[in-house]
Nucleic acid binder design. Structure first.
Length: 320
DNA sequence: AAGTTTGACAACCGCGCGGGT
DNA sequence: AACCCGCGCGGTTGTCAAACT
């Protein structure tokens, strides 16, 4: 037997609140208070609403000193710091931000801050979670991704052309006629003086058939080509970067390769520039840390456990 | 201009906790 | 100790407007 409903669902109004309902609720509470009983309140206030609905409306919208509108950089920073430490305890986080409600913060996190964080995650982690960080494209000439990243099913490296970027200090992108390799600058922080190249999430490689050797050669050639371009870039920018990647063969073994995006996404770049960006980077590091200590869901983001091996490989490889 | 997609926000739902009996 | 019940929380869904195609 389930729990008895808190109200008669058939006789309560649902959906958006009208100004009249807001007025009734506000007037009643200002005169009489909540009386410590939300269930009984709607009837007393003359509202055809569930008590829980009234409570939510009051707490999130009608009560005095509620702050609406844009979150400040400082508020974002506090949210990120607290989230990194305690996770999605929205009520606790809200208690540190006067005028903000837990619902408000939760929505803000889900619609903005989390997406920003997702822009810092390695590609493999992003593939199973959220949409690409579209807003980071605005700084560059590269057009946005047309849709979700999709796994590459073929590998064909015949050419390699750098993709010009608007910002002269941005890291380069490289592509051949079917694939594109991007660089994840965030790795620079997780592994000092190192970077990794990453592409599609494909976990098996069709280079495992009879033509393996040839494709492997092309892969290595492509990788070397990118490597050379990269070293050139790095030496021009006084940095020392290395990159690599592995694919999982059909038999479960690994081999080194550069991954690709089949739909020719033009890549994205994120470089920390503000205190908030560094807060997000902190969360990113903690995610990596928790990924290393446990192969299961870290509690912040759901991660496909089938990808754990690859994910850990990314985060434990030493680059010198 | 119309249809579709995306983003932001509001609201709902179900569960666990804790106080009262 | 066991049960009931309301509250609060976090996850999820719904709605609507703006942006995009």
């Amino acid at each position: 037997m389930g729990r008895a409903p808190c109200c008669d669902k058939a006789n309560v109004k649902k959906g958006p609140w009208s100004p009249e309902e807001d007025s009734k609720l506000k007037d009643y509470i200002e005169k009489h208070g909540t009386g410590g009983n939300w269930i009984a309140l709607p009837q007393k206030a003359g509202l055809k609403r569930c008590g829980k609905s009234c409570r939510l409306r009051w707490l999130n919208y009608l009560r005095p000193n509620i702050k609406h509108g844009e979150f400040s950089e400082e508020e974002d920073r506090i949210i990120c710091t607290l989230y990194a430490n305690i996770g999605s305890r929205w009520s606790i986080i809200a208690s540190q931000l006067p005028g903000r409600t837990d619902n408000d913060i939760k929505n803000h996190w889900n619609t903005k801050l989390k997406k920003k964080l997702m822009g810092l995650l390695p590609f493999e982690s992003q593939c199973h979670q959220r949409k690409p960080p579209y807003h980071y494209f605005s700084h560059h000439q590269n057009p946005p991704l047309p849709s979700y990243y999709t796994p590459a099913s073929t590998i064909s490296f015949t050419g390699l052309e750098p993709i010009p970027l608007a910002a002269s200090n941005s890291l380069p992108f490289y592509q051949n006629h079917e694939s594109l390799v991007s660089v994840s600058p965030i790795q620079q922080y997780h592994y000092p003086n190192s970077l990794q190249v990453f592409g599609s999430e494909v976990s098996t490689c069709n280079s495992c058939d009879g033509s393996y050797s040839q494709v492997k050669q092309e892969e290595m050639s492509f990788q070397n080509n990118v490597s050379n371009r990269f070293e050139e870039y790095c030496s021009n920018n006084n940095n020392s970067f290395m990159f690599s990647h592995r694919s999982i063969n059909n038999d479960g073994s690994h081999h080194e390769c550069i991954k690709q995006w089949e739909e020719k996404p033009k890549g994205w770049i994120f470089q920390p520039q503000t205190p908030l960006d560094y807060e997000l980077e902190l969360i990113y590091k903690q995610l990596i840390s928790s990924n290393n200590s446990s192969s299961s869901n870290n509690g912040y983001f759901s991660v496909d456990e089938n990808k754990t091996e690859e994910k850990v490989m990314y985060t434990t490889t030493e680059w010198n």
